[in-house]
Write a protein that binds this DNA or RNA. Structure first.
Length: 424
RNA sequence: CGAGGUGUGGCUCAGUUGGUAGAGCGCGUGGUUUGGGACCAUGAGGUCGCAGGUUCGAUCCCUGUCACCUCGACCA
């Protein structure tokens, strides 16, 4: 991307939101555009970060045998009335209802009903299971209280997966399978996604864990011990018989000496059991030729929330603690390097152009004139590009200064070796 | 839905004890600049959220309304 043609508008930012500096910066620099409470448009870079996150999630789920599908976002009230959740969600205000002359519809807040209808015609026999399907799509919830820009909006991108098994044992296996994929997703994203024991009450069913990113801006409070690999959401303690729940489902007896930490919930996985199969009366034919309910699991990842969390987790500060920008993890950064040539030096401009081309779309060339080098360096950090290459008078031809924007480390390197260095 | 707060140019905000508005940044033009947010000159851009009321006159006072933000119950 050439910045002179990017139409990014102003990048200089004023005083930033103390709680969510990274997202305020995105808004002020035009990388996010707000349309209303909890409703945002994405500019090029934020959109591409989101797409990279999607791609990583897809790869990890595909690897463990999940099948990607696409369910409708606009859904008829009929399937929701079948499960009994229409009235619940309409009454509590989370459901965005669309009235039409052909009946009521909703902008789906989640898709258990749609998914079970989807598989009902396909997973007819025990021979067709286990099966896990997933989709990545926009979800809508008329949140009574939105919060933290993309962290909780009324419209958000969510990956939702649903597993179908013939019995509880199978469900436990499918659950474990997706759980492992989630852990890998965290690794691939370059962040630590921590499995945290959650209250299973909300969706019904047995086991339930949340995947959290430890962060001071998190809404949730967790109890955590890194060595013993125990983490649980404090809301579990509000549960009746929580000791029994922890022991039976997770084999945990001792929860003393856990330290308290704030965390952002980016994923949640549930063993639903037969709840929806029963309420909607949908199932399969088992070996003994009788109809039985599916054992179902459901698994979510808030993709847009994850994007927000990654940004907030990537802020860089100056000595005085002021936020000066972000440095995205290489794993999700759409542009890995930002090239800043001294424009009145034709040799440097030529070198910059060649380097830019060699990155085949993964680099930003700052070719804006009438702007100081220093200003461009600041802008690099506002866009979140992980590396900066400066081609100026201070280095001889054929060499450049390479800076890691996260650590601030700088080195003089031969231009021909930059690409290799960044992709190793 | 309960409690608080804020609406003034693209962004951050001043201001008018009531006489229809300013700054910095950004944007346009000409020129000088070019290594961690340079400068000079010049220009464009606002029915002061919206609707009523009081007043000779309202962006300012009153009432209503809408939008947005923060805190509670809900959630990826």
């Amino acid at each position: 991307m050439k910045l002179s043609k990017a139409g990014l508008g102003t990048m200089r930012v004023n005083k930033l939101d103390e709680m969510y500096p990274a997202q305020d910066m995105l808004l002020q620099s035009g990388q996010l555009v707000q349309y209303g409470t909890g409703i945002f448009g994405y500019n090029n870079i934020t959109m591409l970060v989101k797409r990279n996150v999607e791609r990583i999630i897809e790869e990890c789920l595909n690897e463990v045998g999940c099948i990607e599908i696409q369910l409708p976002t606009l859904q008829p009230d009929t399937i929701w009335k079948k499960s009994g959740r229409w009235d619940t969600y309409v009454d509590d205000g989370t459901m965005l209802v669309v009235k039409s002359d052909r009946g009521d519809l909703c902008l789906a807040p989640t898709a258990e009903e749609a998914c079970i209808e989807f598989v009902a015609e396909k997973l007819k026999s025990y021979k067709h299971m286990p099966a896990t399907v997933y989709q990545i799509g926009e979800k809508y919830r008329n949140e009574i209280r939105t919060r933290g820009y993309l962290l909780r909006g009324r419209s958000f991108l969510m990956m939702d997966a649903y597993s179908f098994d013939t019995d509880l044992k199978g469900l436990e296996k499918s659950y474990e399978n997706v759980r492992n994929a989630y852990i890998k997703i965290g690794k691939m994203l370059g962040i630590e996604l921590l499995p945290v024991i959650a209250n299973n009450g909300a969706m019904g069913g047995k086991k339930s864990e949340e995947f959290m990113l430890v962060s001071p801006i998190g809404e949730d409070t967790i109890l955590y011990d890194e060595k013993r690999k125990i983490a649980l959401n404090t809301e579990v303690l509000e549960k009746e018989n929580y000791e029994e729940y922890l022991k039976e489902e997770y084999g945990i007896e001792d929860i003393s000496n856990l330290k308290t930490t704030k965390a952002i919930e980016v994923g949640h996985i549930f063993q639903l059991g037969t709840k929806y199969s029963d309420s909607m009366d949908i199932g399969f034919i088992d070996k003994d030729n009788t109809k039985k309910p599916y054992y179902m699991g459901c698994y979510g990842i808030g993709v847009s929330r994850l994007v927000a969390a990654i940004y907030e987790n990537s802020v860089i500060k100056d000595e005085r603690g002021n936020v000066t920008g972000v440095s995205l993890p290489k794993e999700v950064a759409p542009y890995i390097v930002q090239i800043i040539p001294k424009l009145d030096n034709m040799e440097k401009v030529k070198e910059a152009e060649e380097l830019y081309n060699s990155f085949e779309g993964r680099a930003i060339l700052d070719d804006r004139d009438n702007m100081s080098m220093g200003a461009k360096m600041k802008d690099c950090k506002i866009l979140g590009t992980p590396y900066m290459v400066i081609l100026g008078d201070k280095v001889e031809d054929g060499k450049a200064e390479l800076e890691n924007t996260k650590t601030g480390e700088k080195e003089i390197i031969e231009i021909s070796k930059i690409k290799e260095r960044l992709f190793k």
